[in-house]
Design a protein around this nucleic acid. Structure first.
Lengths: 149, 149
DNA sequence: CTGCACCCTCCCGTCATGGGAGGGTCAAGA
DNA sequence: TCTTGACCCTCCCATGACGGGAGGGTGCAG
C-alpha cells in the first residue's frame, strides 16, 4: 500500500501521515526501492487508532501515550482511564467556556432589533467601561487543538 | 500611559498590544520622545472592546469588523446582529463536536474498570476495525481559535 | 514512448500567542 | 551624581496541527 491508499484507508491526509512519522508519533514506514512509503495492514490499524483518538480531541502527545498503552499488553486499565478522564475534564472546561460565550452572545443578539437603526446592545456591551480586568495571562489548560475543537 | 499600564488596564498582554498594532487591528499608538508607546483613555477603551470581543471567541478579523461597526455611527444594527449570530452558530458547531467527544469518552471511561488489569474498552474501541472512513478533508468551519475555544 | 497519476523532499503560511536576546529609558534611592 | 532595577524597544523564533506548492522522480496504461 502506498501513502495515498493509506490515506484513504485511515482518513488521515497524506500530509499528516508524513507529519506523524516525522514527529515520531508512528514509526517510519518501510520504503520501496523507489523511496515510496509502504504500509502494512498493521500500520493501517495503528493509524486508524490514531485517527480515532484525534477525533476524540486528544492531542498528539496524548495519542502517543495512548498508543504506548495500546501496544503494551501489561498496561493497567487505570492508566488509560485516568488519561481519558483528564481529557474529558479538559473538554468539559472548553465546553463551559463555549457555553458562556454562546449564552452571552445569544442574550445580546436577542435584544438587538437587527434593522437599519444603529443602536445595538451588542456593541454597547462590548464598549462598556466596567471590564473585569482579568490578568493578561493564559497559560494553563485550554490550549488550542486541531480543527475540531 | 505606557504599554505596561495599558496591559493592566485592558487585560491584554504587552505582547498582544504590540501585535494588534502590528497587524493593523488597532491604530498605532502615539510615541513619546523615548520611543515608548503612549496610550490615551480612548485607546484604552478601544482595547477593552477588543478584549471583550476576544473573550467572546471572535477572531481577530471579526473583531476588526466589529470595531468598524462600533466606530461607525451610521451602522445598521442588522449588520452587527448577523455577524454575531453567524459567530454563535460556529460556536454551537464546536460545542456539538465537543459534546460528541465527551459523550463517547464518558461512555467508554464508565465501562473501564480502571484497575491493574490491562483490558480496557477505551483502547478496544480506539483499536476497532470498522472505522468510518471519513474523508481526509477539514477545510470548512471549525478552525482553531485562541486558547478559549 | 508518452502522459498522467502518484510519490518524494523542502520550504512557507496559518492563527494568536509566548519567549528571549540585545539594547535603550527612566525614576528612585545611596 | 551614579547605580540599580523596572520598564520599554525591536527582531527573531517557537508553538500545534495542519495545508499549499515548487521542483523533481516513479510507475503504469495506452
Amino acid at each position: 500500500m502506498n501513502i495515498g491508499d493509506a490515506s484513504k484507508a485511515t482518513g488521515i491526509s497524506v500530509k499528516m501521515l508524513r507529519y506523524y512519522e516525522e514527529i515520531g508519533l508512528v514509526r517510519p514506514a518501510l520504503r520501496a526501492n523507489s523511496g515510496y512509503r509502504v504500509y502494512s495492514d498493521k500500520n493501517i490499524s495503528t493509524l486508524r487508532f490514531v485517527r480515532r483518538a484525534r477525533d476524540l480531541g486528544f492531542q498528539v502527545k496524548q495519542i502517543a501515550s495512548l498508543l504506548d498503552l495500546w501496544q503494551n499488553g501489561s498496561r493497567a486499565s487505570a492508566d488509560v482511564k485516568s488519561l481519558a478522564t483528564a481529557h474529558v475534564q479538559e473538554l468539559e472546561q472548553r465546553r463551559r467556556e463555549l457555553d458562556e460565550m454562546i449564552a452571552t452572545l445569544e442574550h445580546l443578539a436577542h435584544h438587538c432589533h437587527g434593522d437599519h437603526r444603529p443602536d445595538c446592545p451588542i456593541l454597547q456591551n462590548l464598549g462598556e467601561e466596567d471590564a473585569p480586568p482579568r490578568k493578561p495571562v493564559r497559560k494553563s489548560g485550554a490550549r488550542p487543538t486541531f480543527a475540531v475543537v
